[in-house]
Amino acid sequence: MESKKSIIDSATSTLKLESEAILGLINYIDDDFVETVNTILNSRGRVIVTGIGKSAIIAQKIVATFNSTGTPAVFMHAADAVHGDLGMIQKDDVVLCLSKSGNTPEIKLLAPLLKLSGNKLVGMLGNINSDLAKQADLILNTTVEKEACPHNLAPTTSTTAQLAMGDALAICLLQARNFQSTDFAKYHPGGSLGKRLYLKAGDIAAKNEKPSISPNAPVKDIIIEISKNRLGAVVVTEGDEIHGVITDGDIRRMLEKHTNLENIKASDLMNTNPKKIDCEELALLALEIIKKNNITQILVTKEGRYFGLVHLHDLLQEGIV
Rank of each mutant, 00 (worst) to 15 (best):
S3L: 11
K5G: 03
S13K: 15
E18K: 07
S19P: 00
E20Y: 03
E20L: 14
L23N: 12
L25H: 06
I26D: 09
F33L: 08
V47Y: 01
S55M: 11
I62T: 09
A64V: 12
S68N: 03
P72M: 04
M76Q: 08
V82N: 07
H83C: 05
H83F: 07
L86Y: 11
M88W: 04
D92H: 07
V94A: 06
S99M: 06
T104H: 04
L110F: 09
P112I: 10
L113H: 04
L114I: 11
S117T: 13
L125M: 13
N129L: 03
N129T: 13
L132N: 02
A136Y: 05
A136V: 01
I139A: 01
L140I: 05
T143S: 14
P150Q: 07
S158R: 08
A161H: 01
Q162H: 13
M165N: 04
A170P: 00
L173A: 05
L174I: 02
Q175C: 03
Q180G: 00
T182E: 15
F184P: 03
G194F: 09
K195L: 09
G202D: 12
K207I: 12
N208M: 03
E209F: 11
K210D: 02
S212T: 14
S212M: 15
I213H: 04
D221F: 08
I224E: 13
S227N: 14
K228S: 13
K228T: 12
K228H: 12
V235E: 04
H243K: 14
D248S: 02
M254I: 02
L255F: 14
I277E: 04
A283M: 09
L284V: 10
I289G: 02
K291Y: 04
T296A: 12
T301M: 09
K302H: 13
E303T: 11
G319P: 01
I320Y: 05
